[in-house]
């Protein structure tokens, strides 16, 4: 068992915890933070692969993931603020207008 394999496993554990957070918590803020956790887990896996393969590409990918995540957070939080203004709530279950 080498370092990289362990980090990949760690990343999958963190990813599953993030998924649970998305699926089990009602607050949009919690959901959002869990998504960040999942992204970070993926980053860990990327860095582990980069380490194992001796390549820089994995690290570059993480860099771009972080940038996109930053953009996502900016827009996502703006959405949450707007929704909170109209709904007085951050619960995702209150946002079910798109029911078929």
């Amino acid at each position: 068992m080498d370092a990289a394999s362990f980090v990949v496993f760690l990343s999958s554990v963190l990813f599953v915890i993030g998924v649970m957070g998305v699926l089990l918590r009602r607050s949009a803020l919690m959901t959002f933070m869990s998504v960040e956790l999942m992204l970070n887990a993926a980053n860990l896996a990327f860095v582990a692969f980069a380490h194992r393969l001796g390549q820089l590409a994995g690290q570059m990918f993480v860099f771009f993931v972080m940038t996109v995540a930053a953009a996502e957070v900016a827009v996502g939080l703006a959405l949450i603020v707007t929704i909170f203004r109209t709904k007085r709530s951050t619960s995702v279950d209150d946002l079910a207008q798109l029911r078929g």
Binding site: V22, V92, L98
Partner: peptide, 18 residues
């Protein structure tokens, strides 16, 4: 029949994705 799937709950969609 199929519109039953569209509950409007984001978490249902996430679950289905999972």
């Amino acid at each position: 029949r199929l519109r039953q799937v569209q509950t409007g709950f984001v978490r249902s969609y996430g679950l289905i994705m999972l």
